[in-house]
């Protein structure tokens, strides 16, 4: 007993003397956190399925089968049978293949929307936080206005601009929602960097201003923004589903995407509820995964959090 206590104590002292960075410290905490592990596992499995979907899926997303179409009647959609483990959908396509292939599209929509929002948000936040003054005032005023519009309303108004709904409009609409959030967050943490010692030191050493901003301020300020991006991935997928439900989703009937499938399945709820249930559960689990991961990242990166 006493030896284990001693070794444990020793490693702890070693840890301290090693002087780990905040990031590696955060990773160490994450590895021990069951919540983080659950989130990471869900996200990992989702990404792997999405990447391998075209290889695992037995059929194409738009491929209709006579065997399934023949049994398609008003009030009846064929259930699981030989060769079609989850049965068919409302157009006689293999539901199992579509579920698998949809993971790819869902990930694509979520990631692209988040990344676009993130990039624009980072540019705005960096400009505002680095320059201050009137640049900051103007950019933050616009950001505040965007924040004053409830997020789904904002996404709707952007998506409604397009002549016809498509996957691109969904991605852009959902991306716009993220921009003000990322920009505000980054500006705040950039501002707190501006007067910190290492930035003053760099400036005093004669480092050029762009280099100070990009190499000294941005890397130290971006942590909370990345955490927010993980959480935004979950809402992005949910918002995309909501847009589909309102008829602003992808108009391509051959495309398989969970939000779209869920929205379309609402008309067949009493005929074959499974068509809605599987995409819904997939969305819930994936959104949960990103949320768990994001929340535990936030906690791990929080210097106050000794938990």
């Amino acid at each position: 007993m006493s030896t284990t206590w001693a070794t444990r104590r020793k490693t702890r002292i070693d840890d301290l003397s090693a002087g780990r960075s905040l990031t590696s410290e955060a990773f160490r905490r994450l590895r021990r956190d069951p919540v983080a592990l659950t989130g990471a596992t869900i996200v990992g499995v989702f990404v792997v399925i999405a990447a391998l979907a075209p290889l695992i899926a037995p059929h194409g997303a738009a491929e209709a089968f006579p065997a399934l179409q023949e049994n398609l009647r008003p009030g009846s959609i064929p259930g699981p049978q030989d060769g079609f483990p989850l049965g068919g959908d409302q157009l006689g396509r293999d539901f199992y293949s579509r579920m698998l292939l949809a993971s790819q599209q869902t990930l694509l929509v979520g990631v692209l929307a988040t990344v676009i929002g993130l990039i624009v948000g980072i540019v705005i936040g960096t400009l505002a936080g680095a320059f201050g003054g009137w640049v900051d005032t103007v950019l933050m005023r616009v950001t505040d206005v965007l924040l004053a519009v409830p997020s789904l309303l904002l996404a709707i108004s952007v998506a409604a601009l397009a002549a016809s709904p498509s996957q691109t409009t969904v991605i852009i609409a959902v991306a716009v929602v993220g921009v003000p959030i990322f920009a505000r967050l980054l500006r705040g943490s950039m501002l707190s960097q501006r007067d910190s010692d290492h930035v003053i030191a760099a400036t005093a050493l004669g480092v050029k201003r762009p280099a100070v901003v990009l190499r000294h301020m941005l890397p130290n300020a971006i942590g909370p923004v990345i955490v927010q991006a993980t959480l935004t991935l979950a809402t992005a997928i949910l918002d995309a589903a909501a847009l589909s439900f309102l008829g602003l989703g992808d108009a391509d009937p051959g495309r398989a995407e969970w939000g779209l499938m869920l929205a379309q399945a609402q008309s067949y709820l009493d005929v074959r509820p499974a068509l809605a249930f599987y995409p819904a559960i997939a969305i819930i689990v994936v959104a949960l995964g990103f949320t768990l991961l994001g929340e535990s990242l936030r906690e791990a990166l929080d210097p106050k959090g000794s938990r």
């Binding site: 939000g259 819904a280 819930i284």
Partner: peptide
Amino acid sequence: TLIGVAVPVFFLGYLLKAFFAV
């Protein structure tokens, strides 16, 4: 609470309707 945030609102609406109303 984590699940509550992850469920699409419209899907929950349909679920409630299908179960408690229909």
